[in-house]
């Protein structure tokens, strides 16, 4: 039985900015145009870099984040603020799912 070697942190960077950041140990998202999602317990989620709303129900909010989507499932969900690229979702969040 052959042992599979698991390499951690060796995935190829997608952009030159990520390459640069990895070279200097800069945390991902500090440089470049990555989406930042800030969760405040399971009551509030602030999505910075939101490109649009795909689905909007009180149990599911699905947002376009450029290179994929992020879905917030829960109950009594609604968007308290939505402007150029920021969406603040409040309610009871049960799960966050990425689809890239």
């Amino acid at each position: 039985m052959t042992k599979r070697k698991i390499k951690i942190g060796t995935a190829k960077p997608k952009s030159s900015i990520d390459l640069f950041g990895r070279a200097f140990d800069i945390p991902p998202g500090v440089a470049g145009s990555n989406v930042k999602i800030e969760l405040n317990a399971n009551r509030e989620a602030c999505v910075d870099g939101c490109k649009g709303i795909i689905e909007y129900y009180d149990t599911l909010i699905k947002l376009n984040i450029g290179n994929g989507t992020v879905s917030f499932c829960g109950r009594n969900l609604h968007i308290s603020v939505y402007n150029a690229d920021v969406a603040v979702i409040i309610g009871t969040i049960h799960s966050v799912e990425y689809c890239m």
């Binding site: 939101c50 609604h78 308290s80 603020v81 939505y82 402007n83 150029a84």
Partner: peptide, 11 residues
């Protein structure tokens, strides 16, 4: 709204 820079709240 997002494209045209219009801010909305309490959606």
């Amino acid at each position: 709204f997002s494209i045209n820079g219009i801010s909305a709240w309490n959606i």
